[in-house]
C-alpha cells in the first residue's frame, strides 16, 4: 500500500511509514484488531480448554488403545511363530549296527511305563549297593511298590510273564527273599493284583526282609 503522505510503499501491517515516519492508519487499525483478538482469545481460553479437553483426552486415549492393540498383536504373533518353528523336532535315527541302535533294539525289551519306573529304582539300588551305600526304607518301599504296580498294570500274558520273571529273579534270586517274603509278587485269590497300599502287610514284610538283606550285605562288606 502507499503512504497517504509521501506515497512511499508501506507494508500493510506497519504502524508507521518507513520513508516519512508518519503514522499509517491502516496499519494501526490492523494492529488494534490483532490486539483485540488476542484479548478475546485470552478471555475465551479457559472456556475453550474446558470445552475441548475431554475431547482431546478421549482422542489421546483412543490412540493409546490402538497402539496397545498393535503391540499385543505383534507380541503374540511373534510368540506364535516362535512356538511353531521351535516345536518342529529334528528327528535323528541311530546308524545301523551302532551301539545306539543295538541298545534300543535289543536292550529295551521291556519298555513299559510302570516297568521302567520299577527298573530305574532297581538299577539305582544295585548301584548304591555297589558303591557301598545302603538304600533307605522309602527307597525300598518304592522299589517294592513299583514292582507290584508293574505286574498290576502289565497288559497281555506274555508281557506279564516276562515282568514276573525279572521280578522273581531280582527279589527271590538277587535279594534272596523267601516265597513268604515276596508274596506281593503273587496275585490274590481272585487272580487279581488289585490296589496295594504301601502299608499293606505283604509290602511291609518284603521291605523289612530287604532291609535285613541289605544290612547283612553292608555289614559283611564293612567287616571285610
Amino acid at each position: 500500500m502507499k503512504c497517504p503522505y509521501c506515497h512511499g510503499e508501506v507494508p500493510a501491517q506497519s504502524i508507521t511509514c518507513p520513508f516519512c515516519g508518519r503514522e499509517n492508519p491502516e496499519g494501526i487499525a490492523f494492529q488494534q484488531e490483532v490486539q483485540k483478538k488476542i484479548q478475546r482469545n485470552k478471555l475465551l481460553k479457559p472456556f475453550l480448554m474446558k470445552q475441548q479437553t475431554p475431547e482431546l483426552i478421549s482422542r489421546m486415549m483412543s490412540r493409546i488403545i490402538f497402539i496397545l492393540i498393535v503391540v499385543n498383536v505383534v507380541a503374540y504373533g511373534f510368540v506364535f511363530l516362535l512356538a511353531v518353528f521351535t516345536t518342529r523336532k529334528e528327528v535323528r535315527e541311530p546308524e545301523k549296527d551302532s551301539f545306539a541302535q543295538r541298545y534300543i533294539s535289543e536292550w529295551k525289551d521291556l519298555d513299559y511305563h510302570y516297568f521302567n519306573t520299577y527298573y530305574r529304582e532297581l538299577k539305582d539300588q544295585v548301584e548304591m549297593l555297589d558303591r557301598g551305600e545302603m538304600p533307605d526304607e522309602i527307597e525300598i518301599r518304592n522299589l517294592v511298590n513299583g514292582a507290584h504296580r508293574a505286574l498290576e498294570e502289565s497288559e497281555g500274558e506274555e508281557i506279564h510273564e516276562t515282568i514276573y520273571l525279572y521280578e522273581v529273579a531280582f527279589f527271590r534270586g538277587f535279594l534272596g527273599l523267601t516265597e513268604e517274603e515276596s508274596l506281593f509278587l503273587e496275585p490274590d485269590e481272585d487272580g487279581e493284583y488289585g490296589v496295594m497300599f504301601s502299608d499293606d502287610e505283604r509290602i511291609t514284610v518284603a521291605v523289612e526282609a530287604i532291609q535285613d538283606t541289605y544290612r547283612e550285605e553292608w555289614e559283611c562288606e564293612t567287616d571285610s
Binding site: 522273581v168 529273579a169 538277587f174
Partner: peptide, 21 residues
C-alpha cells in the same frame, strides 16, 4: 550302557539260577 545292562541282568539272573528258581 550296554555293558552295564548286560552286567546287571547277568547278576540278577545268575543269582536266581544259583538259588535254583
Amino acid at each position: 550302557a550296554i555293558m552295564h545292562e548286560a552286567m546287571l541282568r547277568y547278576r540278577i539272573f545268575e543269582a536266581a539260577s544259583d538259588a535254583g528258581l
